[in-house]
Amino acid sequence: MRVVTTLFVTWLCLLVLLGISVTSVVMLSLPWSLVAVAACALSMILLILVLFMDLKHSRGLTRVYATGATLWLAFLITLTLADYLTR
């Protein structure tokens, strides 16, 4: 039952990351709190995708689509911000 162990470890990591991001918001101030929150959120998302959703054992194609959707979201946000930041 190695898989089960992995899943439990993943879950622990997720809780630790959650703890870090919440405390960093309380303790740190602007640039660093933002960095910490973003880094923690990103790691949590990756852990869920790769281990809970088993992207690790999925076909390359699935991974391409998962990244693709994220990339498109990035288009939406960056190009929109490009407008607001240069007004």
């Binding site: 498109w72 979201l73 939406l76 946000i77």
Partner: peptide
């Protein structure tokens, strides 16, 4: 694959909201 694609569409559905919020 179909389910993953569907989840991609879900990400973009929320993505519109996220984009607006970030702005």
């Amino acid at each position: 694959l179909g389910m993953w694609m569907f989840l991609g569409t879900e990400l973009l559905l929320f993505g519109g909201l996220f984009g607006a919020f970030v702005t």
